[in-house]
Write a protein that binds this DNA or RNA. Structure first.
Lengths: 211, 211
DNA sequence: TGTCATATCACCTATTTAGAGTCATTTTTC
DNA sequence: GAAAAATGACTCTAAATAGGTGATATGACA
């Protein structure tokens, strides 16, 4: 039985204590090895091509010009196959979403202990997305539609088509109604959502989770 | 030490074998009890007010008029505090997203064993969102923005404002540029995205994860 | 079972906004 | 110093929005 090569872990974290503590935990495992660790993104990015990390443990709050979210964007551009796990003290919602948009595939807190850190590495290696209960729920809740929409079924259907970029004519053709009818529905939608254009309606719909 | 009241679990699943097997597992726990189980949504919804479930285990594929996704919508309207866990054989992406939009807070497969089922119940009770590795990753990947956007920084900025429902005039005021310049940028955006209207641009931007 | 409210559908006439095409100048970036 | 990006201007056409009016269909409910 041939043993798998160790997964290459890169650590980007400005606090030297956390850095060395994380490094020790990672290196204690048979499956992972720390290829390098840096105190800022800029240095890490310079050596990306030689470090070739499979996994990056990225601090969100970093000193210098580039924070962890910007760093994640750049690392994902230069090394799309590296999986990035965000490490942070906060579980603030906006930051989590920004981090995920930038390309992170996991999200753990700095208070993570030996087991939590290693199981996050295991989880991401097998194609999962390690995160705390709280963040999992935040992310899921973000999908939920508003069950108390002011719009009728038909209006929602039409709003959906608007959000797909359809014109009045296309909507009427798709729903087998006249153009004038589409317009009436849309007027009613605008009045209920208090908007005055398609794109405003789409923005409102996303904000209020109507579609 | 006073013991917590058992969490009330409702099972909606048409296969009697799975239904009774799940029921047995749930009832075997000190923390949970099955208040009722049904073979379809309609019956479950009729008795919602007396069953008062804390957690609903909902089969996605159901016989009769209403599937699990439609059922979830209605149960969430009538009983917003019930947490719903979807149970399915498939992990197909579109169905997962539809299920989550409808209001589900967890997603497990029918092959779930004793431990997996109970830990999903535990997880949702403590405010988390139980799901498989694969689904967690799907959900997270859904957030990731395209790192190879064809748009420039300024164009992305303007596309963002379009998606917020701003008019040409508002965009030019917000960015301190002339209306004509906004129009030029937008024309360039349209040409790059191969669209011909604001709402189409927004649809494309969401589809291709540009903003 | 009638009636009331709402949703749905249709038409009309403005005015405003957006889109297509072409071109030119300045600023950044590499 | 070339290339890319950002800025600006003009014309003309198409589409969307604002404001009316009114007719059916449908469902809730007393």
């Amino acid at each position: 039985m041939s043993s798998e090569p160790k997964k290459r872990v890169l650590i980007i974290e400005d606090d030297p204590e956390i850095r060395s503590s994380f490094a020790m935990i990672v290196d204690s495992s048979q499956k992972f090895t720390v290829v390098n660790s840096y105190g800022n993104c800029e240095d890490a990015i310079k050596h990306l091509h030689t470090d070739k990390p499979d996994i990056v443990l990225m601090d969100v709050e970093l000193p210098g010009g580039m924070n962890g979210i910007q760093g994640t964007k750049i690392i994902k551009e230069k090394s799309p196959n590296s999986d990035i796990i965000m490490v942070t003290v906060y579980e603030d919602s906006e930051m989590v979403y920004e981090a995920l948009k930038s390309g992170a595939s996991g999200y753990i807190t700095k208070s993570a202990n030996y087991m939590e850190l290693l199981s996050a590495l295991e989880e991401i290696t097998k194609g999962g997305a390690p995160m705390s209960s709280k963040i999992a729920r935040m992310v899921i809740d973000n999908f939920h539609l508003n069950p108390n929409s002011p719009l009728t079924k038909r209006e929602t259907e039409i709003l959906q088509l608007i959000a797909e970029g359809k014109t009045y004519t296309q909507i009427s053709e798709e729903l087998f109604i006249s153009k004038e009818t589409s317009k009436t529905h849309i007027k009613n939608i605008y009045s209920k959502l208090q908007v005055r254009s398609k794109s405003e309606a789409i923005a409102k719909a996303n904000q209020d989770k109507l579609i």
